[in-house]
Design a protein around this nucleic acid. Structure first.
Length: 109
DNA sequence: TTTCTGACTCGAA
DNA sequence: CTTCGAGCCAGAA
């Protein structure tokens, strides 16, 4: 593959797809892993377009573990339920015990 | 073609 | 303690 020729989005999707079951990561962590630490927004925007892709967008949250993108999912609490279904404790749109379920691509990959 | 906006993050004041 | 601006990319109007 030639990542340079692919859009930034494709790189984002590849990383997100590698997030283990029951784990979550942040937009900034993905951006940093891709070598564009200041492109966290782009990662989020990629998720917006990940609708047609096979990307577990519910495993991507902001740095604080807050489900900022839950409004983009169907229903009002689908994202939260998906996470809880994987064993992630979520309260009030925020992931509890974040450090225990946090998965940093820069460290794990 | 230009302009705008968006699921973010961090450092300064 | 809080608030603000800048940097990044893609797609729609």
């Amino acid at each position: 593959m030639k990542p340079e020729t692919l859009g930034f989005f494709e790189n984002v999707y590849d990383v997100v797809r590698q997030i283990p079951f029951g784990k979550v990561t942040s937009y900034g962590a993905i951006a940093k892993y891709l070598g564009a630490a200041k492109s966290a927004r782009i990662v989020g925007y990629a998720m917006n377009s990940s609708h047609d892709k096979d990307v577990p967008a519910h495993r991507v949250v902001n740095r604080k573990g807050l489900l900022t993108g839950k409004h983009h999912f169907q229903g009002t609490n689908l994202m939260q339920q998906l996470l809880e279904n994987e064993g992630v404790e979520v309260v009030d749109n925020q992931i509890q015990n974040l450090e225990s379920v946090y998965w940093d691509p820069a460290k794990e990959l």
